[in-house]
């Protein structure tokens, strides 16, 4: 029972718990916080598996950018749960069907993983713990994976442009979500 394994189990449990909460919480803000917790646990698992740089990138990109975007959106849209008429989940049969589907899928993946393990070569204990060092990553990115690397930048550019175009306001539409329609720009009110 090495410390590595203990930490692994700990963080794994944390990740799964966080994931369950992401699905289960009613208030979307709570969902976001649970997601943050999951991100951190997963990042820790990365470190334990010899990819510290990726752990950092995970925190920065996922927790620091994506999650912020999500929270912004939640705040912008002033979402509130629950309104009495709305129920959180779909109807019961849909829940059962989804549950079954996901259990089956999960089972398949586990099985796949288990079989993969059987054919994986024996671990090289003596090898350096850290695999994905920045140097190694850099070598790979600017070597073998140069093209995807450049394409990724194009993709991000496209995403930026897309986001800007999609959210452009048509003329005369209200500037803030809850503001009454009026001419000209107006400051967004705080959600009540």
């Amino acid at each position: 029972m090495t410390p590595a394994i203990v930490l692994c189990v700990l963080f794994a449990a944390g990740a799964i718990a966080g994931g369950a909460n992401v699905v289960a919480q009613r208030n979307p803000v709570n969902n976001a916080i649970a997601l943050l917790f999951t991100f951190i646990c997963v990042a820790s698992l990365y470190i334990l598996h010899g990819a510290p740089m990726l752990a950092m990138i995970q925190i920065i990109v996922y927790a620091g950018a994506i999650l912020i975007l999500v929270v912004f959106t939640i705040m912008l849209l002033a979402l509130r749960e629950p309104e009495a008429a709305l129920t959180r989940f779909w109807t019961f049969p849909q829940k059962i069907a989804s549950l079954l589907a996901c259990i089956v899928l999960g089972g398949q993946l586990l099985y796949l993983g288990w079989r993969a393990v059987a054919v994986a070569p024996a671990a090289d204990v003596a090898a350096a713990r850290e695999l994905a060092s920045p140097a190694a990553l850099g070598r790979a990115l600017f070597g073998h994976y140069l093209l995807p690397f450049e394409m990724a930048s194009v993709l991000l550019l496209a995403a930026i442009l897309g986001a800007v175009v999609l959210t452009r306001r048509p003329k005369g539409a209200p500037t803030a979500v809850n503001a009454p329609p009026d001419e000209g720009p107006s400051t967004p009110e705080a959600p009540s």
Binding site: I16, G19, V23, S98, A101, C102, L105, L109
Partner: peptide, 19 residues
Amino acid sequence: LAVGAILFAIGAFGVLVRR
């Protein structure tokens, strides 16, 4: 592998179930 599979399954369930 197991944790990844479970996270994936939970996420899939959430996609289907939440509105």
